[in-house]
Amino acid sequence: MQIDLKGRTALVTGSTQGIGAAIAAGLTRAGARVGVNGRTPQRVEDSVARLAQEVAAADLVPIVADVTTEEGARLTLEQLPQVDILVNNLGIFGAEEPLEITDEEWRRYFEVNVLAAVRLTRLYLPGMMQRGWGRVQYMASESAVVIPAEMIHYGMSKTALLAVGRGFAKRAAGSGVTVNSVIAGPTHTGGVEDFVRELVGSELPWEEAERVFMRKHRPQSLLQRLIEPEEIAHMVVYLSSDQASATTGGALRVDGGCVDSILP
């Protein structure tokens, strides 16, 4: 399948590392103009420079903004007024004893993982609908369906994204704009390595630590390994394309079989 995104402009939030960086790279390779987003100028500059080296003739727009705030969302709109593909990737996660999660933490997870995506959708969806083409995606997680005991607040926020995606898909019905969520499974990023170490200890070699984590904490995985960020990016790039024009209102799984269900 040849995916050609030339002439399309994409924004990937939280795209200086991990899954977001892989998504930005995948969209760039497909020919899209890509807004690379982060909170600090140096990290954004480094990410843009690295991606420009990896992809010949890359068309990149550095977006330095904290999109979890109203001011940051407005600043993003100023820097990139028109977006055809919005990938709401930014998110936070971490393990915490369920009965010790404070009100403040519950609010923080909702505001960062859910409200930031809703806010950007409100800003960019009307233009997509007016132009008759657009793609909005929310990076959810298998934790939205299989709620981890050690990350209830995180799971809650990802479950909310599934509802947000379905709801905005209905709002965009018949407009030529598709809205979907991507259910990503446990993925091999720097942040997840730290998370794994937190749960299984720092003394084990990484390969063994990964096996122990998957066996003890994600035994439902059929892959029985962490997913690589590029494997998540492949789904996002496809959903961003013309070939995915009949896929909307969905929750597409790249979860390694973690969700023990035929349907999401």
Rank of each mutant, 00 (worst) to 15 (best):
V61S: 02
A169Q: 08
A32C: 06
V179Y: 07
E231F: 10
A22L: 09
S141Q: 04
T69I: 15
I92E: 12
A30G: 02
T40S: 14
L80H: 08
T28K: 05
R108S: 10
R119P: 01
P205N: 04
L252K: 02
V83R: 06
R225T: 13
L115F: 15
V36M: 08
Q220D: 13
G18Q: 08
E210L: 12
E71L: 15
E97R: 14
R135H: 08
L99Y: 06
E78K: 15
I23C: 06
L5T: 10
E230W: 02
T248C: 02
A116G: 00
A246D: 03
P148Y: 00
G165Q: 12
S241A: 10
K170N: 11
L5D: 04
V254P: 01
L51E: 03
Y138P: 01
S143T: 13
D242W: 09
D46W: 01
A149K: 11
L90S: 12
I101R: 14
R29T: 10
M235C: 12
V36S: 12
M156C: 08
I92W: 10
F195N: 01
A140Y: 04
P81V: 07
V182H: 03
N113G: 02
A22I: 07
V212I: 13
I183M: 13
A140F: 05
I101T: 15
S221P: 01
V36R: 14
